[in-house]
């Protein structure tokens, strides 16, 4: 029985971390689907979200929930402006220019965060800190549980947004055919900026949820590489795929950390990615399954 409990334990921990990968991957996918660019600064947006929450909650002394909400609002505004003021200037340029631009933005964000918040890892108190739930031998920290619940809640809101609202449908339309979307009365540029806003907001939420588990530091954004693996795993273009990909990477990583020698853990995400690219290059969820409007 101990073994089963331990396996469940590992899977639960992996799922929690995987949810974070999934949320960052979701940001990759949203921006890619709508604007056809890959934002390599996605992980760094998460880092900025984490630090911002640290300032609001630990420094300013706001309530956790209020700080969480404000972080999301501020980061959404930041994402919107990032597209409206910076990314929009490279529309029509070669993909490589966009790639270099987002990579460069990542460097700037890390440097700026270092100047503003310093290079030490920080944390802030949450209502979940130190609390543990025991389900008959299976121990779940309240922090991990908050990640799971937070991810599910966020996904539910996003699902309703994309399936029910005019703006969500406009985003899907823009991702399929920009020219046609324009002539249906959809302001495509504004839709692009709003997509960046949502992606930044989701990344910030991931940062706030992850902060109590992994601490916030300048290089937190490198987690984005594992999230990138998760996005590719899910087919890069599929929102459920990104989440499933994230959870798969998270679980594989936990299992590797438990059963393989030290050091293997951090390469497993990329090992899984390589494996998927070789065996199923279109990703776990194939195009026909995922492109449903």
């Amino acid at each position: 029985m101990l073994e089963t409990a331990r396996v469940i334990q590992i899977i639960l921990n992996g799922t929690a971390v995987g949810c974070i990968y999934g949320l960052v991957a979701l940001g990759f996918v949203l921006i890619y689907k709508t604007t056809e660019t890959v934002n390599f600064a996605q992980g760094d947006l998460m880092m900025l979200g984490g630090f911002l929450a640290f300032t609001l909650i630990a420094k300013v002394g706001l309530d956790y929930w209020l700080g969480f909400l404000l972080t999301i609002v501020f980061m959404a505004a930041f994402g919107y402006l990032l597209d409206a003021l910076v990314l929009r200037r490279v529309i029509g340029q070669p993909q490589f220019a966009v790639f270099m631009l987002t990579l460069g933005l990542g460097f700037i964000f890390r440097a700026a965060a270092g100047i503003v918040w310093g290079y030490d890892a920080v944390s802030f108190p949450t209502p979940f800190t130190g609390r543990v739930l025991d389900f008959g031998g299976i121990v779940v920290s309240a922090n991990n549980l908050s990640i799971l619940v937070g991810t599910v809640g966020l996904c539910a809101v996003l699902y309703l947004f994309f399936s029910r609202t005019r703006l969500g449908v406009a985003m899907q339309a823009s991702s399929q055919n920009q020219l046609a979307a324009y002539y249906m009365g959809i302001p495509v540029r504004t839709v692009f900026s709003l997509t960046w806003a949502i992606s930044a907001a989701v990344a910030a939420a991931a940062g706030v949820l992850l902060a109590p588990v992994a601490l916030v530091d300048v290089n937190m954004g490198f987690l984005g590489f594992k999230a990138f693996a998760a996005a590719v795993l899910g087919g890069f273009g599929s929102i459920p795929g990104a989440l499933i990909g994230g959870v798969v990477v998270g679980i594989v990583e936990q299992v590797a950390g438990y059963s393989l020698p030290a050091g293997f853990r951090d390469v497993t995400a990329n090992a899984v990615l390589l494996g998927v690219l070789v065996l199923r290059p279109q990703g776990i969820l194939s195009q026909t399954m995922r492109k449903k409007v």
Binding site: A173, Q176, N177, L179, M184, K291, V293
Partner: peptide, 21 residues
């Protein structure tokens, strides 16, 4: 263009621009 649509002007395209999926 997106404002023109709401004023009551619609267009089609020579090579068809539909939402294929």
């Amino acid at each position: 263009p997106h404002v023109v649509a709401s004023l009551g002007i619609a267009r089609t395209f020579q090579n068809i621009e539909l939402f294929a999926n």
